[in-house]
């Protein structure tokens, strides 16, 4: 999937950073990056080369509720799976309003959620070990 010819690889890295690759091509590059150090280096060089162009996009205020939404995703109301990237929540919307007014982030901080995360990760690992032993 990733070419071996140096110029072709260089072009692919450049297009990956520029953003013109189709979804399947971009996914293939992203998947190759962890194991292909030379490709990673080429991508990093292109990122650095083009990064100053980020300044061409005019700054704009995001919707005011966006931070609360980010927080709600990072600290779901049900602490059962706080680190799950896609929590299996049936109704994502009602979660946000109940989270927002409570000063949870100030009163108990992220520590408690981290603990929950660690605890549930440890529990999952223990369960996996038990299952593996059976």
């Amino acid at each position: 999937m990733i070419p071996t010819d140096p110029e072709a690889r260089e072009g692919l890295a450049a297009e990956f950073v520029l953003g013109t690759l189709e979804a399947f091509e971009a996914a293939a590059v992203a998947a190759a990056l962890p194991t292909d150090a030379a490709l990673r280096e080429a991508v990093a060089a292109w990122e650095a080369r083009l990064a100053p162009l980020q300044g061409l996009a005019p700054p704009e205020a995001p919707p005011p509720e966006l931070w609360a939404r980010i927080e709600a995703t990072l600290k779901p109301a049900t602490p059962a799976a706080p680190v799950a990237r896609k929590p299996a929540q049936a109704e994502p919307m009602p979660v946000a309003p109940t989270m927002a007014p409570t000063a949870a982030e100030d009163s108990d901080g992220p520590g408690i959620w981290r603990l929950w995360a660690l605890a549930s990760t440890a529990l999952a690992a223990a369960l996996a070990a038990v299952l593996a032993l059976r």
Partner: peptide, 20 residues
């Protein structure tokens, strides 16, 4: 895992990043 730092980063950079 300093959550307050994430909020500070958001406050400092959200407008530039939302522009992107």
């Amino acid at each position: 895992a300093d959550h307050a730092a994430l909020h500070s980063l958001y406050q400092a950079e959200a407008e530039r990043l939302f522009g992107l």
